[in-house]
Design a protein around this nucleic acid. Structure first.
Length: 575
DNA sequence: GCCGTTTTCGGCCCGACTGTTTTCAGTCG
């Protein structure tokens, strides 16, 4: 059983317990445990061989025992009993917007409603309005909620969400009363996928701004409108929320809406210990006086902390690190010296080697590896081994033209075939400057097979980097089901680097395993996998993964000097 | 259910908005 499966089990327990009416802190404890497992970076089954499970934050004796039972038997008596008490089908009702655990329990216990279909029929027949605390409007809202659930759009990738967010910030900034506007929420924290879009504005005529916002031409539905907060839905199903505060309190608002919720809860606990109550309105002292903050820095400073970068605000130890001065020195885009994964017209890239090299140099890079696909990836026009010689001639030519302060490498993104062999023979790989090996096909193999396939490749001394490790495609296609503990161990033993693929549809390695890999001492390589000059700018998404993973520049291959990268390649037997 | 330089027991974040209510409960972020 994987950490993800364990986490889902505990979330299910939390939901069922909450409907049942269990004390909220018990429910929260299960949710916290689920999140802890997700970010552990090591399978619980492996973790427990070296340390007891209750050394994981948020996991105590009771949940540790449940994990052990799940790992050993695949079942959990506690959950089975719970499921006998609370119908599991109630969980689909819990998905309906504006329906929470209390309403679900009400529908179930007082109207015998146990499925989404039951609920819809009851609402249509106006039976819900007869229940206590329910009325005509609530009933209507539930029908709308069920409809919204049906047309619910998936989470967006960061690559889709960012341009939308930027566009709305521009619109906000153009509104007459707005002095400052930003997007916040998970988009500002650079989470790999985004649900709703959160916007904040400093403004001294909130009513006018909210009116403009809710009557924007793209709005198909106003989900809520108040003095400080409004929520709208666009025709494509995207939900936007706008929060406002007067300019003198913009910092508190920005901090609050940026989240994460978990970070905010932790920060509020921290504030409380110092006698402050923290909210989006500012800090309230024990004397009841409110202090406002126009920027985030001064808010964190008032709590005795340095400013914490949004990428770190996930309650993964950042507040403690801030307190002790141990926040990581986060990576910045201009620290990157090299792009080690790119494509040209020799395979499925749209630009020539020369165009790619010029574009890389223009962006301040000092090194570019051309890593076209190998032959068997027919869909991408992969190169046959004999073409590599002609490509080498062209690369030499462009290298001469670029001069000595820019280094061009001839590499390959060699295909890992379904049987774990590579697409080029070793003697061909040996002649290249850099070799990335990637999975593109047969990703659905069972865990033992796909892991063994990768481990075999990792033992090949001619392979330097494993590209986009799992092959996942965001937001919806899962990657290969790899035994990550074995894979990371093999990377370390063989001195390989692992790629953080910067394409927003990949971001693979993810932040959890990037963090783990860096802690283990495995070099990371942040690459755009560029198929055109514009793709080189995707690097910011890759950098965001490294930042969210607390990875510092020394752990990133591309941040090393050209000399150091070359030395690393030579140490691996390259010319 | 978890956790501890205020606690091994008694705490565990905070406010906006909505709809149902005449003062509050539920949901959400």
């Amino acid at each position: 059983m994987t950490n993800e499966e364990l986490a889902r089990t505990f979330e299910k327990i939390a939901d069922l317990l909450e409907i049942k009416g269990e004390v909220i802190y018990v429910v929260l404890a299960y949710r916290r445990a689920a999140e802890s497992l997700r970010i552990l970076g090591q399978e619980a089954d492996v973790y427990r061989t070296s340390q007891p499970l209750n050394t994981i934050p948020g996991i105590g004796k009771a949940i540790a025992e449940k994990i052990i039972e799940l790992l050993d038997t695949g079942k959990l008596g506690f959950l089975e009993k719970l499921e006998a008490e609370v119908p599991v089908s109630l969980l689909e009702i819990l998905e309906v917007p504006d329906v929470g655990p209390k309403k679900v329990a009400l529908f179930w216990k007082q109207a015998g409603i146990t499925t989404l279909a039951d609920l819809e029929i009851a609402a249509q027949e106006h039976r819900l309005r007869q229940l206590p605390g329910m009325g005509e409007k609530s009933e209507q809202r539930i029908l709308e909620g069920i409809a919204a659930l049906r047309r619910r759009s998936h989470r967006m990738t960061l690559g889709v969400a960012r341009p939308i967010g930027l566009r709305w910030v521009e619109w906000l900034q153009a509104q007459p009363c707005v002095q400052q506007a930003e997007f916040a929420g998970s988009l500002r924290r650079w989470r790999s996928t985004i649900g709703d879009l959160d916007l904040v504005a400093a403004c001294d005529d909130s009513a006018a701004l909210m009116a403009a916002f809710t009557s924007h031409p793209e709005v198909v539905r106003v989900l809520g409108q108040g003095e400080n907060k409004s929520s709208i839905e666009l025709s494509n199903g995207l939900k936007l929320q706008l929060w406002t505060q007067p300019p003198e309190n913009f910092g508190s608002l920005f901090q609050f809406v940026s989240g994460s919720k978990e970070h905010n809860v932790r920060l509020r606990e921290f504030a409380l210990k110092q006698g402050w109550s923290l909210s989006e309105r500012g800090l309230t002292g024990t004397d009841g006086k409110l202090v406002t903050y126009s920027d985030e820095e001064s808010l964190y400073k008032a709590l005795g902390l340095p400013w914490i970068a949004p990428e770190l605000r996930e309650d993964r130890g950042e507040i403690q690190a801030a307190q002790t001065g141990d926040l990581p020195a986060l990576l910045k885009i201009d620290q990157l010296q090299a792009e080690l994964h790119s494509h040209s017209t020799w395979s499925d890239g749209v630009n020539t080697i020369r165009e790619m090299a010029l574009a890389a140099r223009q962006r301040g890079l000092k090194m570019l590896a051309i890593t076209d696909h190998s032959a068997s990836l027919g869909i991408a026009g992969g190169l046959k081994a004999e073409d590599l010689l002609r490509q080498r001639a062209e690369i030499d030519l462009v290298q001469k033209e670029m001069g000595s302060d820019f280094r061009l490498l001839q590499g390959t993104e060699v295909e890992i075939k379904a049987d774990g062999s590579l697409d080029y023979p070793d003697e061909v790989l040996a002649q290249l400057d850099i070799v990335i090996a990637s999975l593109h096909v047969s990703l659905r193999q069972p865990r033992p097979e796909v892991t063994a396939r990768l481990l075999k490749v990792m033992q090949n001394p001619h392979v330097d980097i494993i590209g986009h490790l799992t092959g996942r495609l965001l937001p919806n296609r899962e990657g290969a089901d790899l035994d990550m503990d074995s894979v990371l161990k093999a990377a370390l033993e063989n001195g390989l680097a692992l790629e953080i693929n910067a394409n927003p549809a990949r971001l693979d390695l993810d932040e959890v395993y990037s963090r783990r890999a860096a802690e283990m001492g495995i070099p990371l390589s942040i690459n755009t996998d560029a198929h055109s000059p514009a793709d080189l700018d995707l690097i910011e998404y890759g950098v965001s993964v490294a930042r969210r993973a607390w990875v510092e520049p020394e752990a990133v291959l591309n941040c090393w000097s050209v000399e150091k990268i070359t030395a690393w390649l030579q140490s691996r037997g390259r010319n």
